[in-house]
């Protein structure tokens, strides 16, 4: 199928600003789905609120646009209802790690089979540029007019320690890698997390004098390196990208199904 067959064309052009990285994530995600040969009916997409969440409106899957931070909680109910389908949950950094932080770590802990894509643009874009848990110390935002004094999360470490069984990081510049990573994340049986460094030239870029979308993507090109590279040893400030975790652990829905098979038909004790 052509890429556009996955898009609800009547809503295009989309609402994202010129150069927004979220469009690249959507573009890439479509190709991953296409490469996997999945039908549109095979995918349920559940999102929260924010720029990232708007992706559900544009893609012709089963789409559920929920509440700020709650996408994974809704998705958990959906997955238990339809364990046979692929669940993809696109989230923003605020959506996933601030208001939805609790749902995020617990979905990871349960290892429930779904794919969380965290489009990390380090800012609240929809509301106009407030600092998020990923903005970073010293960064500027409309709610940090004198510089941010909040320390940032590391999404990869957070997901890893919470128990996610697939954890990866990539950037919008490395879209070819992103396609491959998303393919692996989608077919992974368990909770998979893909952090995508995604530029917000309108707010994060402008507030922090990082240039336009092109400049921000160049910073991803120069500021990141594959996991375990020599470059990282020489320059510890480089951000590693690639697949950090990929392991098999009991998956929640499968385990629950085992309980049903064990006790079904038994009478009350």
């Amino acid at each position: 199928m052509a890429v556009r067959d996955y898009i609800r064309e009547r809503f295009m052009p989309h609402i994202w600003c010129p150069g927004c990285g979220h469009g690249i994530v959507m573009n890439t995600l479509i190709r991953a789905v296409e490469n996997l040969g999945l039908r549109k009916n095979d995918i349920i997409m559940v999102s929260g609120i924010g720029c990232s969440a708007r992706i559900t409106g544009y893609l012709d899957f089963h789409t559920l646009h929920t509440l700020h931070g709650r996408a994974l909680a809704f998705a958990t109910g959906v997955k238990l209802g339809r364990p046979d389908l692929h669940i993809i949950v696109p989230m923003g950094d605020g959506d996933a790690t601030a208001i939805g932080g609790n749902h995020f770590i617990h979905a990871a802990r349960r290892n429930i089979d779904m794919t969380a894509i965290i489009m990390n643009n380090r800012i609240y874009g929809m509301t106009g540029g407030q600092y998020s848990p990923l903005s970073g110390y010293g960064r500027m935002a409309t709610t940090a007019p004198y510089g941010n004094i909040d320390q940032a999360f590391d999404i990869v470490e957070l997901a890893w320690s919470a128990g996610a069984t697939f954890v990866a990081r990539t950037t919008t510049y490395h879209a070819h890698d992103m396609v491959t990573i998303l393919e692996k994340a989608i077919v992974h049986k368990g909770f998979s997390v893909v952090e995508v460094l995604s530029q917000c030239p309108t707010y994060y870029g402008r507030k922090n004098k990082l240039g336009d979308a092109v400049e921000m993507m160049k910073s991803y090109q120069k500021g990141t390196t594959p996991i375990g590279s020599n470059a990282k040893k020489q320059n510890p400030d480089l951000v590693e990208r690639g697949i950090f975790v990929q392991e098999e652990k009991p998956e929640y829905c499968t385990e629950y199904e085992k309980i049903i098979q064990k006790v079904k038909g038994e009478k009350q004790r």
Binding site: R70, A73, F74, G77, L80, G81, R82, H103
Partner: peptide
């Protein structure tokens, strides 16, 4: 199916998701 969620908020969200299906 029964699930004990991480909080009350998540419980409410999960039943909505399941009901939809």
């Amino acid at each position: 199916k029964f699930i004990q969620m991480e909080d009350e908020i998540a419980s409410m969200c999960a039943i909505i998701g399941a009901s939809l299906t």
